[in-house]
Design a protein around this nucleic acid. Structure first.
Lengths: 219, 219
DNA sequence: AATTAAATTTAGATTTGTCTAAAAATAATT
DNA sequence: AATTATTTTTAGACAAATCTAAATTTAATT
């Protein structure tokens, strides 16, 4: 079965809103989609008929297994395209969202898989959100590479990529250790170096190699 | 002003059909777009109101300057995406058309320009059709680089890129000269070498450097 | 528990792009 | 030139997605 862009946008919105426990309400959806509650009701009936969600009058909505699968496919495309725009086409990470909103509706299955392979099967998009794989599985976010940390998000060093004395010597000199709280202020695409800021210290730059050797978790 | 996917498809279809002299007829358009003549009439009125074409009842249609500009923009996107799919994502040149039909409607101007730059401002798509530049200008096809010649299209050597003795020595040894008729049987993306076939000879491979030094015209 | 407030649904209208069937205009043929 | 055939347009209807305004249900408050 195939779905319209509008239907896909509803499914995606419900997916993002239902991360908590309870059902997603009509008004929440109307706000998220910049439309009116009456329009939402109409569409929910339609999507229920297509078995993408469970919905009872006045009781809100939740995605079915099929609906979740569809949503994960759209999210996968959205985040892969964002990665492509930033990594391959040198867009700023803050200007890709709207373009990806269009690209996520391109239907070719083969395109998605080829794009994923071309990009090297990235696990996180430029904002640090996990990219679902072709089976819909997402990496758990708690242990991400410092190089994948989005700009201006506070994180805590949670691991190092090797135990080499050379690495540890460098970390000691920079006063970086497990538990150090930092954020990235800027990424330089020329050499993939990044400027980081540790609380109560001046910002300073570290190399791509060092950033790749550090794991952090968002706090 | 912005246009729907349907409107863009009409404009593109008219553009392709009006290459000759006369006006494009309602029935021609209906056939091209797999729709009915009545639907075409409705849309032509709408597009005329938007000043994209000139249309008089029963007399067919032609694009206005604005319409041509829009059409060239769509064709530009279509062919750039085809180039991307083949060159970057390793699609076969025969399986990209439908995907490009979707991608050509992505609206971001910045995306098109960045994509063009990333691809190295290609002049021809994988089928050998010229790609309009950002001003809508297309290269004249009669003198294309051998490396841009599509697979399995007969062409005739029409020029060489340099007059160096080294090049001419090589050409003499391979029995290639101005007027030689050949076609490409295969392109190898690993080193951009190509396998060519000259009438009454066995196929053989030539290097990227040699292919880039040869110009051909389609016959 | 009754009443007010908020959220949700229904009913009916609108826009976009399409269709069928009938009418009108143009082209082809005798 | 008159008739037939073809092409094109009009008229009216339909599906998708939306809206406003009114009705209904649920939640909150006195």
């Amino acid at each position: 079965m195939s779905f319209s862009i509008t239907e896909e946008n509803y499914i995606k919105a419900i997916f993002h809103l239902q991360q908590g426990e309870g059902n997603v309400t009509t008004n929440e959806l109307a706000a998220e989609l910049h439309t009116k509650a009456a329009s939402v009701t109409d569409m929910l009936k339609k999507l229920k008929a297509k078995k993408l969600l469970s919905y009872e009058k006045y009781k809100g909505v939740r995605l079915s297994a099929d609906g979740k699968k569809l949503a994960l496919g759209i999210v996968r495309k959205h985040r892969l395209w964002e990665y492509f725009l930033v990594d391959t086409l040198q867009f700023g990470w803050d200007e890709v969202h709207e373009v990806a909103e269009e690209l996520e509706h391109i239907s070719s299955k083969k395109l998605v898989e080829k794009l994923d392979a071309f990009l090297g099967f990235p696990k996180f998009d430029p904002h640090g959100d996990p990219i679902p794989d072709s089976h819909g599985k997402m990496a758990v976010q708690q242990h991400i590479n410092l190089i994948d940390l989005p700009v201006n998000k506070m994180a805590e060093v949670s691991g190092v990529g090797s135990q080499s004395t050379e690495l540890l010597e460098l970390l000691k000199h920079k006063h970086i250790g497990i538990g150090t709280k930092l954020e990235i202020k800027k990424k330089f695409s020329f050499d993939n170096s990044i400027e980081i800021k540790i609380k109560n210290q001046n910002a300073f730059t570290i190399s791509q190699q060092l950033a790749q050797a550090l794991f952090v978790k968002l706090i």
